[in-house]
């Protein structure tokens, strides 16, 4: 216990426990995630997502849709994808309460920026990042409305929570109301109105077409691209510290930072949650498994640096400029 607050002891990569798994609509479950020992989870803001590495080895991204005033719990909503590549099927069919998942992030490419007015447009499971945004818009007293579409009412998650917002929320199941009436919801752009949209590709395409001539920054969307990333490894990997001439093995239960410390190579760090950026280290060879909250997609793709307090390796071997 005392060790955990001891500054020199680096944290291991964070693993979360599935504290609850709840069916909330047809084909949608929510997972409640907590630290196995009840510790605080890394801070996040609306629009953030996490990478979850499932026991089957797949890594998938999910928007956080809980309440960040509860620092001990994450909630994500997971749709069973019709053409699932395994991640959502695994969560629906096999993941049980008590199971462990590894955490990357949270990262935020879809931050809620300050505005007096918001229009939120959600399609299906795209409602998840918008839920905490709506809560926040309500909290700061912004003028907001939500248009929420889905295949049919039974497939649309969180209707009970949204009901509390009254007529600020328009629920438009396709089998009752047809396609979303974007022309009514997105008339001419207004500087005082930010539009946030998340949902399936065709909805995002339609919204982007509709807003193509708008000034930049008024429409903000999030699109989860199914990326064929190298699967992360749960086994140990080698790290070579080229300048120090040291090679070491990072076992699954240690962070790179911790393994380096054990080997007597100290890298300055601070938050040890992949947030502050202090331990940034140059990667000379190998492919990092980024689990920080700092790099954007482009920076991750470069693969030229990593944050050893949380990030790991996709390849057998990483070579660092240390």
């Amino acid at each position: 216990m005392a060790m955990e607050s001891t500054p020199a002891g680096a944290a291991t990569a964070i693993e979360l426990r599935v504290a609850a798994r709840t069916e909330v609509a047809d084909g949608v479950v929510t997972l409640t995630l907590q630290h196995p020992r009840g510790k605080r989870l890394p801070d996040w803001a609306p629009g953030a997502h996490v990478d979850l590495t499932l026991p089957c080895g797949l890594t998938r991204q999910y928007s956080l849709c809980g309440n960040r005033w509860d620092a001990y719990t994450y909630r994500v909503g997971v749709l069973r994808e019709a053409d699932s590549r395994g991640g959502s099927a695994f969560i629906h069919d096999e993941l049980t309460e008590g199971a462990r998942v590894a955490l990357g992030g949270p990262r935020n490419n879809f931050a809620l920026v300050p505005s007096p007015r918001y229009v939120f447009i959600a399609g299906g499971i795209g409602i998840t990042p918008l839920l905490p945004m709506i809560a926040q818009a309500e909290m700061v007293g912004a003028d907001w409305r939500l248009l929420y579409g889905g295949r049919c009412r039974a497939s649309m998650a969180f209707l009970d929570e949204l009901h509390a917002y009254g007529d600020k929320v328009t629920v438009a199941p396709q089998d009752e109301d047809g396609l979303l009436d974007l022309s009514a919801w997105l008339p001419a752009p207004r500087q005082d109105t930010k539009v946030y949209c998340c949902g399936p590709g065709p909805l995002l395409d339609a919204v982007e077409r509709r807003c193509a001539d708008w000034p930049a920054g008024l429409l903000r969307t999030e699109r989860f691209l199914a990326k064929d990333q190298t699967p992360v490894r749960s086994e140990a990997f080698e790290v070579e510290l080229r300048r120090s001439g040291v090679s070491l093995t990072v076992p699954p239960d240690q962070s790179v930072l911790q393994a380096m410390n054990t080997a007597g190579v100290h890298v300055l760090s601070s938050c040890r949650q992949g947030l502050c950026g202090t331990c940034e280290t140059t990667v000379l060879a190998g492919e990092p498994d980024h689990r920080d909250s700092i790099l954007d997609d482009e920076e991750r793709a470069h693969g030229d640096c990593l944050f050893p307090c949380v990030s790991r390796s996709c390849t057998d071997r990483l070579v660092l400029d240390l």
């Binding site: 001891t6 500054p7 020199a8 680096a10 801070d43 410390n261 100290h266 890298v267 300055l268 760090s269 601070s270 938050c271 040890r272 202090t278 331990c279």
Partner: peptide
Amino acid sequence: RDPSGHVGFGMG
């Protein structure tokens, strides 16, 4: 010493 984790810059 590894001063990592000091709160001279704050934390959080």
